[in-house]
Design a binder for these strands. Sequence first.
RNA 1: GGUUCCGUAGCUCAGUUGGAUAGAGCAACAGCCUUCUAAGCUGUGGGUCGCGCGUUCGAAUCGCGCCGGAAUCACCA
Length: 597
Amino acid sequence: MKIEKLISQVLIKGIPELYGQPVSQEMIQLQKTNKEFEGDITLVVFPLLKISGKSPEATGQDLGVYLENNIEDIIKFIVYKGFLNMVVSDRYYLEFMNRVCRYNEYGFSAKDTDAETVMVEFSSPNTNKPLHLGHIRNNLLGNSVCNIIKAAGKKVVRTNLVNDRGIHICKSMLAWQKWGNGETPESAGKKGDHLVGDYYVMFDQQCKLQVADLISQGKSRDEAEKTAPLMLEVQEMLRKWESGDAEVYALWKTMNDWVYEGFEETYRRLGIGFDKIYYESDTYLVGRDTVLEGLKNGLFYRHKDGSVWVDLKTEGLDEKVLLRADGTSVYITQDIGTAQERKNDFHPDRMVYVVGNEQNYHFKVLRLVLDKLGFSWAKTLYHLSYGMVELPEGKMKSREGTVVDADDLMDEMIKTAREMSYDLGKLEKLSPEEKEDTFTMIGLGALKYYILKVDPVKNMTFNPRESIDFDGNTGPFIQYTHARIKSVFRKAEENNIKLPEQAILTIALNEKEKNIMKITHDFPEIIINSAETYNPSLIANFIYDLAKEYNQFYHDFSILKEPDPEVRAMRLMLSDLTAKVINSGMGLLGIQVPDRM
RNA sequence: GGUUCCGUAGCUCAGUUGGAUAGAGCAACAGCCUUCUAAGCUGUGGGUCGCGCGUUCGAAUCGCGCCGGAAUCACCA
């Protein structure tokens, strides 16, 4: 049993014996002992003073004696003001290490066959332009949250919702039709998503010219934007698409397929995949039917122009349109349909949406509308809202060309890893393929860690120069720690030193060794916590603390040159455990760790 | 204007359900490779935790009010 839990239990039994009054779990406040004091675990005694009727010091003293007498692994205690600092035996941590070292996935909860199923939607791209930095944060968060929830013992269904229809999609299509001259990704030598994105930009530019032209002819901006020939044409194209026009539909299909191929490549490099992909073009009709059904049942009302609305004023929100006057659907219509499809397909106990915080209001509305429609599972929707990614100069603006493209960014990170590696004279013994794999691991590791170490709710600044930094609190620093440990094991093997099965329990641990054991001891709890709060940054910061502590140990003490074979064996095991936790913790972030770097 | 979120070192970020003298990294400066990988380690400087009031044994953390920033309040997605 974990020592913290044991202390809690003993106190709940012991305090009534000592003071004749019961205690509740919340009054037992255990925390890690601060660095500047001796001890491992601290009990805050202030909440217990009412029960003891004594001073903080006297209460701490009473409880210290009681715990020392009743728990074998508490070998000493020091009372300082209102804090009872307890020293945990080295034996306890050695036993812990022996117990845990044989598992490759130490810290992960056992997979329970009747565990709840959590469905997570993330990525959710539009098919009119390539993925950018904002999508990267979304993808990394979604992927990592899935890994973490799974590690916490739940079943996870990864899903993506592709926004593949609408006026914005038609814009690229129209531009290609007009000016593309039959260009294809192959003929252009370009990824499909980039090619389609180029036509989207082209449309925008041409349209602006027309608008400017109309304004110079004396029209208002508003009027010009509505009557520009290209705008009229693209609207006509959308109508054709919705009515199933064969030619438009074929073009849509072709260009979307180009985009999917491009996305596929980006996802593959990022290490991301899905169990199920939904397409808005498939689900919007389901939502429309549901809305009409709700209208029939009097849940919604029809405006005199024919549009359908929901009134959420009693819920503190406003009125919201659910279907346009012409009967076509809006964004939320599609989400209503998608949610139902998902429920039917997978029966999830929870549905998590990884979507930026600019859509907080939208998800509030979605939940309320689904609730109004009588879906009992509406309250199981959770919007994992994350902050915007900004550049040091401010927001990314596609107009000003400051959008950071996902593919370019990955290329840049890997390139930097390569240059850095050559500068440092690393990896010379590896084959070209192994080298490239390692550069990719490091470059992407830097990128992913840089983004995931920040609390999702916060807006973050993406500083390109800083993100490719490989020192300090970075992915490569952690990867390096792993590579160092693996290097020790290679050396051990050369010298015929084997990793022992068990460490003997009578070894006296130094401070660094004990610290590393204490940190790894917390890993299971960190995973649970991180899963419950949908927060990968907890894992990232935890792994960093571990790597930092290990590097100090590595610097201060020798492993293979340690003369005492029992101590050497223990240090090897400790190193092995550290490597395993780094490996699986980074794995939860979607980051691979190399054996050499 | 209403609602929601954010505000911690020059910069980027940590800081469990309120706990001891608020921590890392980057940048700057000064050290450490004959020894398991120096992408490492050590040290120095750097703070009115946006401001004020309140709650209490105790507040960066909770409440209220300001100030600053962001998002949103579309028959856009």
